[in-house]
């Protein structure tokens, strides 16, 4: 039976057949194109994650966030028992966003066409920053402050939902982001 018969010759000395040879060459070229697309996009593309991240303590991050809220708070939103502050930070500034069980804090109001340095960090477990309907998705870790520079393009009301499973109320972890 062919399944159990081993090759007649030493296998690494077998001749290469044309179908396979041509396919291997084509496939290898395609693999290299895909590989070089990634560095190419770092140079010429607009959508890249920075490699900027710091180890941070939750209490320090929370303090910086509260300082920012105190400076730039414009209003509060939500039902009475769970008001969430909305901040409108100046363009180019450092913006802090806390992920925790099970909320995002605070809500952000940004301006279209301006860039912001958004700092993301979790206070407890892993969370997932998922901006909808843009569909930008970034992992949020506890203990790591991740700095992402974003430039909103279109005004509107966006949602930030959590897309990393974080326990039984995971589905309630949703917030807003406004672009003026």
């Amino acid at each position: 039976m062919t399944i159990s018969s081993s090759s007649e010759r030493v296998w690494w000395k077998e001749p290469l057949e044309r179908t396979e040879l041509i396919w291997i060459v084509i496939a290898l070229i395609w693999c290299l194109i895909m590989f070089f697309m990634m560095p190419y996009w770092h140079i010429y593309g607009q959508q890249n994650l920075a490699n900027e991240a710091y180890r941070a303590k939750p209490e320090d991050f929370a303090r910086k966030t509260e300082e920012m809220i105190a400076k730039y708070k414009v209003r509060e939103e939500g039902p009475d028992n769970m008001k969430v502050p909305v901040v409108h930070p100046p363009a180019g500034s450092d913006v802090y966003l806390i992920a925790r069980l099970w909320s995002w804090h605070p809500q952000l109001e940004l301006e279209a066409g301006k860039s912001y340095r958004i700092h993301l960090m979790s206070m407890d477990w892993l969370h997932g920053f998922s901006l909808q309907p843009e569909n930008i998705n970034i992992q949020v870790h506890p203990g790591y402050e991740h700095v992402v520079t974003v430039t909103p393009t279109r005004p509107g009301t966006y949602a930030i939902i959590c897309n990393e499973y974080c326990g039984v109320n995971h589905h309630t972890m949703a917030s807003r982001l406004y672009v003026k």
Binding site: M38, G128, N163
Partner: peptide
Amino acid sequence: TEQLNLIIHNT
């Protein structure tokens, strides 16, 4: 792919 993952991750 590093950058394409941004629009896919955890969806």
